[in-house]
Design a protein around this nucleic acid. Structure first.
Lengths: 338, 338
DNA sequence: CGAAAAAGAGTAAACGTTTACGTAAACCGA
DNA sequence: TCGGTTTACGTAAACGTTTACTCTTTTTCG
């Protein structure tokens, strides 16, 4: 078995208390000489402190739990990247939980994380139900939401302002001379990412005087933000409307789905139709043509979320939520109209 | 603070030993009556066993460590998805480490995982150096490699046979009537994913009698497998060769880079040039045109790796390596020549 | 030089469990 | 009825640390 502190103590002819003091760098309670002795013993035995035992007595596991709906999603994986980066930089570890991998396991996960005594929770990218909130609250550790928020429950969050960002995307199209603009949206019942983006779209139309009094804005709504949703909605759009010159897709995946369908229909982007996306995933620059989109700084969001969490873990206070800046990334899918 | 087993014992008027026995379902050593009593106390107090204390005494943390170079990569995130899925199904947790997030931290990570007493290691998708191997060996827990292998060190791995898969991709092009085929490859010095794919390519050419005696096969080699590599290599290819009718790219990202560049050069895929990729990432079906590619069953590989690891954790034996099946996914980027 | 203060180091309790061992009560068959 | 077996449960040690409390030795300085 692995050597313990006792082995080190015996080997160096000191007590375990001394070894412990040296290990914890208290820099008080031992002489240079014994330190050297002990360090040598540690070296020789290849001793490494047992974090489990430490965790038990300190009540600190140096571990946080991270719950995301789908790592394999490009959005989620970027967030995780950011979270992991600062977490490890700060000497902690992340236990990763993929909440959508097998059914309704979120509550089980929270239970598990609670038993493992994680010191904080990052919950990302999906709706915080009452049950989830209760479970998190019961754990009595700080938690932060990332890329989602909850109006009902008071947890700090890190996200961009979806409405503002959608407004900016729409305004960009308008400034490029487009007048007849449609939106491919997520589920309007989705209060965190669905509705706000639709609202931003509508508001921009209104502000720039493009909302016709006699009709509703052109919003084609799906259930999610996927590539397939993009394809379906775009198909519906084309069937219904022919005079649209620009489309705002509520996600990059949708935008790519739309572009792909447009390609099959022989509609040329951006010459015949302009498309702007949302997220700035890696695929958006790989698209043909490269996709103009509104960026969410995903890695930075992950980092910020972790920083916020650690702040909470240190101070005990629940920090302030953070609105991250969005930004239009101009590439080649939007054409300037004369 | 959270209630402990002592609180439960006191509350139910029994000893902690009894509570422990009931918790562990030993189903021996207590009566139905006390069980009911204890369960009720647990319920009332909202007691949850402390996994840290359990871990200390059992020497089992129910946690494995997973090291991948870049979660945000589409390949890696799929692997992680699979690993996480079975790990959690088996009641364990995964501590995730992103080895490339900040410099050369792999050794630090391994150290950390060792101190946290993880029960196993999954190391993915990058080269296993001697130092890494030493560190893993020193931990004295099973480890498995996924999407990589090491000939020097005896660790079981889960991966597809790169040479076979590359052979299959090349053969596919040949069967579609192509005779003049180029390859966009990774680094030939990369012994695990670079060279084998090149070898597979060359071998197929040879087997089908397409290797001209007077010249080397057309392999354009880069440093990695990225989109940019794909762009660069494809540009070089076009400058150098004009009579190529098909290209085998050593990764989907490269293939997409190539297609994107082709688009800009007004080379039409697949009409003027066929392209086959490697990996079958999500983006490959989103590409324009949808990319024909050779699939690596990434999630399944992640799952298998985890299963292999748990097998090792139970039996103590180091399991056998597993070669996963590859498969040609036919989409629309390869044209049948008459 | 001697007393007080500081420094070095050890002892043992504690963290929250599991489990070997012990013991008393209940059961059981003849 | 009684010896023996089973069942129910408690006591206490152990897991590998940290740390409060000691005690001893050294240092400081009037």
């Amino acid at each position: 078995m692995k050597p313990t502190i006792k082995d080190v103590a015996r080997h160096a002819n000191v007590s375990i208390a001394t070894v412990s003091r040296i290990l914890n760098q208290t820099s008080v309670g031992y002489s240079k000489k014994t330190e050297k002795l002990v360090m040598q013993a540690i070296e020789e035995l290849g001793y490494r402190p047992n974090a489990v035992a430490r965790g038990l007595i300190n009540n600190k596991t140096q571990t946080i739990g991270v719950l995301f709906p789908d790592v394999s999603g490009m959005l989620t994986s970027e967030l995780l990247y950011g979270v992991e980066e600062v977490t490890h930089r700060l000497g902690h570890s992340v236990i990763f939980c993929n909440t959508s991998s097998s059914g309704e396991k979120t509550l089980d996960y929270l239970q598990l994380l609670s038993e493992k005594r994680v010191e904080g929770i990052i919950f990302g990218s999906s709706f915080l139900t009452d049950a989830y909130y209760e479970a998190i609250a019961a754990m009595n550790v700080p938690a932060v939401l990332v890329s989602t928020k909850s109006q009902k429950h008071q947890l700090p969050y890190v996200k961009v302002d979806d409405k503002d960002a959608a407004y900016a995307a729409t305004a960009h199209l308008i400034k490029k001379g487009h007048r007849r603009i449609a939106m491919l949206s997520g589920n309007p019942a989705d209060i965190v990412a669905g509705k706000p983006r639709i609202d931003g779209f509508k508001e921009a139309l209104l502000d720039f005087g493009l909302a016709r009094i006699d009709e509703e804005p052109l919003v084609f709504a799906g259930n999610g933000f996927s590539y397939e949703d993009g394809r379906d909605l775009f198909t519906r759009l084309i069937k219904a409307e022919s005079d649209v010159t620009a489309v705002f897709a509520a996600s990059d995946e949708m935008a790519i789905g739309a572009m792909s369908t447009a390609y099959q229909m022989n509609i040329r982007v951006p010459d015949e139709l302009s498309i702007i996306g949302y997220d700035n995933l890696k695929i958006s620059e790989m698209a043909i043509p490269p996709l103009t989109t509104v960026e969410q700084p995903l890695r930075a969001m992950g980092r910020k979320a972790a920083e916020l969490l650690f702040e909470g873990m240190e101070t005990g206070a629940t920090g302030k939520s953070i609105i991250m800046p969005h930004r239009i990334i101009e590439r080649q899918s939007v054409k300037q109209l004369v």
